[in-house]
Design a protein around this nucleic acid. Sequence first.
DNA 1: AAGCTTGCTGACCCATGGGTCATTAAATAT
DNA 2: ATATTTAATGACCCATGGGTCAGCAAGCTT
Lengths: 202, 202
Amino acid sequence: MARPRYQRRKEDRPQEITAAAFGAFAENGFTATKVEDVARRAGVSKGLLYVYFKTKEELFKAVIRSVVTPRLDELTRTLDTAELGAEAFIRGPVLDFMKRVPGSPVSVVIRLMISEAPKHPDLVDYYWQNVASRGLGALRQLLRRGVENGEFRESAVTDLPQLIVAPVMMSIVWGIVFADRSLDTDRLIETHVDMILAYIKA
Amino acid sequence: MARPRYQRRKEDRPQEITAAAFGAFAENGFTATKVEDVARRAGVSKGLLYVYFKTKEELFKAVIRSVVTPRLDELTRTLDTAELGAEAFIRGPVLDFMKRVPGSPVSVVIRLMISEAPKHPDLVDYYWQNVASRGLGALRQLLRRGVENGEFRESAVTDLPQLIVAPVMMSIVWGIVFADRSLDTDRLIETHVDMILAYIKA
DNA sequence: AAGCTTGCTGACCCATGGGTCATTAAATAT
DNA sequence: ATATTTAATGACCCATGGGTCAGCAAGCTT
């Protein structure tokens, strides 16, 4: 009995709150999520949440960053590591990564970005600089390398890495809108990559 | 002087309100749009709006329908009319249609669907039955026809018409999130279609 | 064990915006 | 002209939810 009503754990709170917020946002989106729900999920009072995050928007940004940052590290690590040919690299790590996205937190972030982008231009900047432009840049570079060493022929694809990523986008959106009506996203993405490679191979 | 403060135009009001709502939703999304703004845009009082639409949600549904219905007619008309070979049909009317989508009202509807789908399952049903499944069904049928008459070979694409539509999705999402950072959507879609045809041609 | 700092609570404030309804006035009928 | 109908208004109601803050108590310090 007489267990203390709470413990003071200054260090862990932000983490925990961010995680709780991610869960809530994933389920209900940003606008529909109440700050109090996030607090409850985190086992914390609303007041404390506002100690660590100035506004609901700040919390939102923190959530996005918390998901994006580790993925970013993963990305750059993969890019540096492997020294495969361009095609092998695409069929390997890139395809793998793409197949994992639709079921991952990244998918949630993209959904949030789609819904909230117009109201958060600074977040869009952040996402662009740290994720989108880097990822697409890496892909473009990879394609160029393939062209230079004779694996690939010149084509519009080299300048349009969005083309490679398109079926991932499709899968994510499908998941958001038609959650129940299933779609074989793995097959979709695999076929697409196969198709692209057939198209650009020298 | 003494011009009447308003005219009674029972017939036109719903139309006008729906149009105003579309504009407002396109700019601010559903949740962020205030009913009063819609009313103001339509040159009408909030009270009158509630005469014609029971709730904000009803209004939302009416807007979706108002955009979807004419497109649907357009689609079925195109499908019945043309008697081209499968490839010519894809390179012609289908490609044309796809290129027009990213800048059209359909794009707005898709954005709204992405944001609001989880809260409006009945709308998703409506959209699925009247747009998505029909459109994809038509594409699938077209691909089958191509296989049967020897234009195309068998492949996973035949069962995955989502693959054809993917770059349109990509373009729309890009437009939503990275509005300013331009993307040559026409080139994206053209290249993609070219790629698909090369892949599935017999 | 008394005092002090500060992590934490929860009751409160209030702007916002969806929805209502008594009232007004345009159009129509008598 | 007068009465009747109903399209249309706009002031109002109130639930919701973001944000605040005075006070409480956990856990040091001395």
